[in-house]
Design a protein around this nucleic acid. Structure first.
Lengths: 104, 104
DNA sequence: TTTATAATTCGAAATATGTCGAATAATGAA
DNA sequence: TTCATTATTCGACATATTTCGAATTATAAA
């Protein structure tokens, strides 16, 4: 598979991760958390745990977990265990990359 | 449905349209066509027809047509009949909007 | 008018996705 | 150690998606 082919598959996977409304909300919450004007369900260090994220969305924890995994596999977010919780945050690099993608 | 809910559904639909590798290639070709360094299968006015688009992709015309429709319904591209052909081009406004979306 | 070309619509089949609930694993607290 | 909390994995099911080929529509050319 050519480099070009790989590039399209990678970006298609990124957009697929953002193509579900609930997953997009999760991504958006993580990206904007703790900035001025946002709700305070998240940690002050721009991370959030799976349980907090699910509260707003009316979906069960196993589904939240699944969505988090999809976002992580697509490279959109990073995760790290902290005690009983899993902290999640958006990778700042991917935001730059995506902005660049739409700069033709 | 709240305005916020609508917003997420709309953007999720946009990303869904870009979540298929072939559709993403079509979008990319249209967005970059006729700019320096691109191949010259397209019209000089930044438009392309369905037949041209399908040549590179190894998919039959009916599938190309389907993908074009998805991109159009998502608001990513515009189309217009010109004789036997349907001209397609990327909506410049949506590119700005998407760049802005990733500017947190 | 008849024929050719371009694109769309439709129906079908294989595959993928979203969601849930139950069971399991990981960690912290009593 | 035992119990409680948080998150993940698994299996299942309903729904959606991708793609094709055949039939149809729209336009141009002979």
């Amino acid at each position: 598979m050519s480099n070009n082919e790989k590039k399209f598959k990678r970006y298609a996977a990124i957009f697929k991760a953002l193509s579900n409304p609930n997953r997009l909300k999760i991504f958006f919450s993580l990206a904007t958390c703790c900035k001025p004007g946002t709700i305070g369900i998240f940690e002050p260090d721009n991370t959030a745990c799976v349980g907090d994220i699910g509260k707003d969305l009316d979906i069960v924890p196993s589904t939240v977990s699944h969505h988090i995994k999809e976002l992580r596999l697509a490279g959109l977010i990073k995760t790290q265990r902290k005690g009983q919780n899993i902290e999640c945050w958006v990778d700042p690099e991917i935001l730059e990359e995506l902005k660049y993608f739409f700069s033709f």
